[in-house]
């Protein structure tokens, strides 16, 4: 189900917790699984659960509770835009409108070519750098004004 590299990452996470508390690694393992698969199909969640010797339903509960897990396929680049109040005061809404117009999709949608998914996000803890985007849960982009947005979309090949 998973590559040797991903399994190595799983082991590294499991080692952080007491031997009898393997379940503690479920969040990190699901994140690594998602990174490899692009999203979390039920089989991947079940495989993570089996790896950690926990009930699949308990792993599914975690996957469905935290909002950075994708339980449905997303585009190659998932762009999450913070529109919470502190960001909105410094252009978060406007940046969101700009990207939506540019890609021709709304929040929660994916472009027809499967390249981009847009998500409206909650506070990313970077309000001083607004407008703020996160690409594929990992890469945070600050001060996203039109010029920077154009450049980002250009770089997403």
């Amino acid at each position: 189900m998973f590559s040797a590299e991903t399994l190595e990452k799983f082991d590294r996470e499991v080692a952080k917790y007491p031997v009898e508390q393997k379940q503690s690694a479920v969040m990190a393992c699901l994140a690594h699984a998602q990174e490899e698969k692009g999203w979390l199909p039920p089989e991947a969640i079940e495989a993570v659960a089996n790896y950690l010797a926990m009930p699949p339903m308990a792993a599914y509960e975690v996957a469905s509770f935290y909002n950075m897990y994708d339980l449905k396929p997303v585009g190659k680049y998932k762009i999450t835009i913070c529109t919470n109040l502190p960001c909105a005061l410094s252009g978060g809404y406007h940046a969101g409108e700009y990207v939506q117009k540019k890609l021709g999709i709304g929040y929660g949608e994916t472009t027809a070519d499967g390249k981009f998914t847009l998500k409206e996000g909650e506070c990313m803890g970077a309000c001083g750098d607004a407008p703020v985007f996160i690409v594929n849960n990992r890469s945070m982009c600050s001060h996203m004004h039109p010029e920077q947005i154009d450049k980002l979309l250009e770089e997403c090949k």
Binding site: S24, V26, F65, N67
Partner: peptide
């Protein structure tokens, strides 16, 4: 331990549940 998107985990006992690998 890396979270994955839940404001509630800033509440200390929710945070402990989260480290234990739960909602």
């Amino acid at each position: 331990h890396h979270g994955y998107g839940a404001y509630i985990c800033g509440e200390e006992t929710a945070l402990l549940e989260s480290i234990e690998g739960k909602k």
